[in-house]
Design a protein around this nucleic acid. Sequence first.
RNA 1: GGGGACGUAGCUCAAUUGGUUAGAGUCCCGGCCUGUCGCGCCGGUUGUUGCGGGUUCGAGUCCCGUCGUCCUCGCCA
Length: 466
Amino acid sequence: MLRTHTCGELRIDHVDHEVTLIGWINAVRDHGGLKFVDLRDRYGRIQVQISQESIGGDALETLRFDQVLKVTGSVMERPDGMRNPKLETGDVEVIASSTEILGECPPLPFNPDSGDQVNDELRFRYRFIDMRREEIQRRFRLRSDMQFAMRQYLHGHDFLDLETPMLTKSTPEGARDFLVPSRQNPGEFYALPQSPQIFKQIFMISGFDRYMQVVRCFRDEDLRADRQPEFTQLDLEMACIDESDIMGLVEGLMEHVVKEVTGKEVTLPFPRLSYKEAMLAYGSDSPDMRSDLRIQEFSDLVEGLEFKVFSGAVESGGAVRGMRIPGGGQWSRKEIESLEPIVKQQGAGGLAWFKMTDDGPAGPVSRFLAGAAGEELIQRLGMEPGDLACFVADKQTRVVVNSMGQLRKELAIKLGHIEPGVLNFCWVEEFPLFDEDEETGQPTPCHHPFTCPHPDDLSNLESKPL
RNA sequence: GGGGACGUAGCUCAAUUGGUUAGAGUCCCGGCCUGUCGCGCCGGUUGUUGCGGGUUCGAGUCCCGUCGUCCUCGCCA
């Protein structure tokens, strides 16, 4: 080995050891005849002291950021008051007796320390620099640990890790396929799998009753902030089981993975809610349970409210839904109205709202709340002075659901409910097999076309699929 | 494909209703510095204001076109 230790591992126990390190120069603090150099590698950082006395004569090299440097020297305990508690290795430093630059580095196109401040385009163009960043390395480590933990757990539950072809044929799923021209058959193409489940029946009927893979999926659709054309999925297939078996297994899997990767405990079993409940209360089929904001149905009250926007929506077959935002009554009118684009983006005509003051309701909707229906609405919301209530009404329930869901999501962030790193799992049950296609009115798979209908609904499959 | 925002120094950003020599921090270069760890101090260079055209006495700023990036909707589970 060209090195005796990594940059992250030296501690007080190593004092007086002779070591050789190789790493990238993370900083140079030049005091004339004495330089402090932070040396970095995947495992951490350590301070190296390079001086004329220790290294002899004119051997001091010109040191620059991100040169690759080899240092030989001895580990010394830092003097009192010179320790750096921010570094794992901060109690010691290496006094260099010789140095050698293994890799030169011209000025970089961006400073890796500024990280997320820099354009994505520039970061991706120089991905090898971006990937030197501690944060990026941490994420790679996280993925690696996570995939290892998944395989470890599933291996322990008799799952085989099987591979399936990448060059395959088009599947009846909704996304556009990535195509690969075939050399052997000019004019014909392979499709890359949108997801690998297409092969599951073949494995099942061949007797592989449990298999898993951590596998790439390819979907040739436009990008979004949280979406890439290729991504990795855990695919898990089992035979001879019922719903409780798979829920138990997956809960155990998540418990194991979270424990292994973060050290955190998760509470089992996960809470369960139906698709209908999720769409109503959270406006999403994948609700973020970290916020306790809840959407409520008010379509049944509109008759007593005499508010045309509300009653008109319900009469046309739509809905009115609203949400109490604790403390939102403190916001200015301008601040509240700045929420409107969120729901308009989802197709809603506008955002209706009122706030609760010590003197009762105030704001645009308050004048419709005088009667008994208004009283009940306020009571159902649980409005207290200082609260805000927001509503969306539309003749299409789908628009109401999406608008309120998006509003809930953004308000949860605004209110600080969404703590990064907090994991609140839940199950969403009773997914419908089909949705109504917006354009054609025909049934379209709500989840994906390989799911099995609920046994109770099997008889409806032909007659009334929706 | 629709809508919106943006494009100024290597990087991150300023530049008043259109007004004189386009600035700051950082990076970089030179000098000083033996206890720094975001080292400090002194000095210095940043430039086709994305590109092309137009309006104007005068355009980084306004208009048109074009290219690029990001967000968003469509699309996608």
